[in-house]
């Protein structure tokens, strides 16, 4: 009755009622967060469906949707095994929305971390860095009753705009040029922020602007130790863009990593990287969350020569 009244009110305001592809009466709308979705989305495997046969009817997520309207949904589970940037692409034959939801850090529910909409025949893309875990991917209609066939796929985001991406050569060259010196017996302090396209250790993940130069007059055996608010990764290279001489990660759950390495005379570059992305806040579709670095925290690097 309320829906009818709403439609009538809209008509009275001179607005056409929402264009609806006919759909059957949907099942109950309340999602059961504890139950994993019956549909599974696999990396690189397109999923096709038709939301005129809905799984759920969900209210409340207004981002990317016509405010206040319900729509019919297909709900997929997407299991992430490896932290990376992923791109979800929805190609709907109706005015559709794709939403990605992450497990709330402290509550028994999922929250919206990204969404996009597309008109009939267009593509909606959502690109997000994701850590390991189960995500819900919802195919939705932009307006109430909007439904139809679609194709949904997820792939690794390897674009130049991915938050997690390989080093940008120019960017890293600039970091090497201004890299401060590490001196044996002294401590370097700083603040780490993940930087897309920044220096990325071969055994690291997020990339950063933390690059130091270690200049040796003669071959030495050196110990380089990093401690940080996060799980640090250390790499030593013989040149700015050279392959890693050595790379080490802190053990899972630890905040310290150490490298002991024989190094030749000359300049070496020490790169600090991270292994994980920080959990999101749990706030539905918080725009600022997308501007924030994926990982940040203070660090120290201690360098010393060790006897051979």
């Amino acid at each position: 009755m309320l829906l009818g009244a709403a439609a009538l009110a809209l008509a009275g305001c001179g607005l056409a009622p929402p264009r609806a592809t006919q759909a059957p009466t949907p099942p109950p709308f309340a999602p059961r967060w504890e139950d994993p979705p019956s549909r599974q989305l696999e990396l690189g495997q397109p999923a096709q469906g038709d939301t005129r046969s809905p799984d759920l009817r969900i209210t409340g997520w207004r981002a990317c949707k016509h405010a206040g309207y319900w729509a019919l949904d297909h709900v997929y589970g997407f299991e992430v095994g490896e932290t990376a940037s992923y791109r979800f692409t929805l190609s709907p034959q109706f005015h559709g929305v794709v939403q990605v939801l992450e497990k709330h850090p402290s509550e028994p529910r999922y929250f919206l971390i990204g969404c996009e909409r597309a008109g009939r025949g267009a593509r909606a893309e959502v690109a997000l860095p994701l850590g390991p875990g189960l995500y819900w991917v919802v195919v939705d209609g932009y307006q109430r009753g909007e439904a139809g066939p679609y194709e949904l796929r997820v792939e690794r985001d390897t674009s130049a705009t991915a938050k997690l991406r390989p080093e940008d050569e120019d960017q890293v060259s600039a970091l090497c040029e201004r890299a401060p010196l590490l001196t044996a017996g002294e401590r370097a302090h700083g603040r780490f922020e993940s930087t897309p396209g920044g220096a990325r250790a071969s055994c690291g993940l997020v990339g950063s602007e933390v690059v130091y130069r270690l200049s040796l007059a003669s071959p030495r055996r050196m110990r380089v130790r990093a401690s940080a608010h996060f799980r640090p990764v250390l790499e030593i290279r013989s040149g700015c863009h050279a392959a890693a001489t050595t790379c080490a990660r802190a053990p899972a759950g630890e905040h310290d990593v150490e490298i002991v390495q024989e190094l030749g005379a000359g300049d070496h570059f020490v790169v600090l990287d991270g292994m994980q992305i920080e959990p999101r806040s749990g706030v539905d579709f918080e725009p600022k969350a997308y501007e924030r670095p994926l990982l940040q925290g203070a660090y120290i690097i201690d360098t010393e020569e060790v006897p051979r």
Binding site: R187, H189, G190, S227, A228, H229, G253, E254, H255, G297, A298, Y299, I300
Partner: peptide, 15 residues
């Protein structure tokens, strides 16, 4: 020292 309590406690010295 800048200390964090999320997960494992850790304090990192500042410059």
């Amino acid at each position: 020292l800048d200390c964090r309590w999320d997960g494992k406690d850790v304090c990192i010295p500042q410059l």
